[in-house]
């Protein structure tokens, strides 16, 4: 016989889940449906008249070379940020784990960037690399390297990737460090006695045991690179030069508020939403299978 645990009161369960449902409705379902609605409308430049245009907005976007460029830029940017932020954070966490006693100061320093708002982080990096007043740009010039991210698209991309990575590393670091410390020391010792050197222990024992953490962080980092980096792009490059750093989320903003193409922007955000949802689904379906819990 199965024992069923339940509430005798019929209303209470609904009251208990209500806050969550309301939050989802107000902050996700409602704006998302607004975006969907807007994406099939077109407004005149003064916002006086709106008419239904079906999928015209989508068709226009997909033919727009600017949009395709933005897709490409986003792919480069997101892959670089996720890979760098995860890789570097793991490296730092492994180093910290080895010297964990002296690591308190080290940890604190590493966690600071996370407390910095994206826009502030962006401004910080922008000043460091500013071609005329930035100290790093100055140092690079002294070394004979001409730094000007206001003119060079690749340098601009490098800069926003660096800034976005720097901002995310601390978050990843904390999770990786916690994950590392949850691995029983005796496992590592057993592997050492079994003959595994430091590198082999890392690849065959530590990394597999860290894979749930790494998978979770992968999802978080991809979402971060797609959305939360808006502030950095906005403050450092504003998508330039010549759209070299115009990622999708920035283009959504730009087309809506600068170009005032509300319908087109809404259609873009619908596509963006679809991309992130499908990426997350792919991650859960295919990557998670290789994760050892």
């Amino acid at each position: 016989m199965r024992v069923r645990v339940g509430y005798s009161n019929k209303v209470l369960p609904y009251i208990l889940v209500a806050p969550q449902v309301i939050i989802t409705l107000v902050f996700f379902i409602w704006p998302a449906s607004q975006a969907l609605y807007q994406s099939v409308q077109r407004q005149d430049p003064f916002g006086l008249r709106t008419r239904f245009v079906g999928l015209d907005n989508f068709a226009a976007i997909l033919e727009d070379p600017g949009y395709l460029n933005s897709l490409y830029v986003t792919a480069i940017f997101s892959i670089s940020v996720a890979a760098l932020a995860l890789g570097l954070a793991l490296l730092l966490a492994v180093s910290a784990d080895r010297v964990i006693r002296g690591a308190t100061a080290y940890k604190t320093l590493l966690i600071w960037p996370y407390a910095v708002a994206p826009a502030v982080a962006g401004v910080l990096w922008m000043f460091l690399f500013n071609p005329t007043i930035g100290s790093v740009a100055f140092a690079l010039k002294a070394l004979g390297y001409d730094w000007n991210h206001l003119l060079d698209g690749n340098q601009a991309m490098l800069l926003v990737v660096l800034a976005a990575t720097w901002k995310q590393i601390s978050y990843n670091f904390i999770f990786f460090l916690a994950g590392l410390q949850a691995i029983p020391k005796s496992l590592i010792e057993a592997a050492a006695i079994d003959g595994a050197g430091r590198n082999r222990r890392f690849w065959t024992i530590i990394l597999p045991l860290l894979s749930p953490t790494a998978f979770f962080l992968l999802v978080v980092n991809v979402v971060y690179a797609f959305f939360d980096t808006f502030g950095i792009i906005h403050s450092v490059t504003s998508g330039g030069p010549a759209r070299a750093t115009e990622i999708l989320v920035y283009k959504v903003y730009y087309d809506a508020f600068e170009a005032l193409d509300l319908g087109g922007s809404a259609a873009q955000s619908v596509i963006l939403m679809a991309i992130v949802i499908s990426l997350t689904v792919v991650q859960f379906r295919y990557v998670e299978r290789r994760v050892h819990y």
């Binding site: 029983p184 005796s186 057993a190």
Partner: peptide, 12 residues
């Protein structure tokens, strides 16, 4: 070779 109190088997 060593046998540990908590066995220390590789869980994966």
């Amino acid at each position: 070779a060593m046998v540990f109190q908590n066995y220390a088997l590789y869980p994966h």
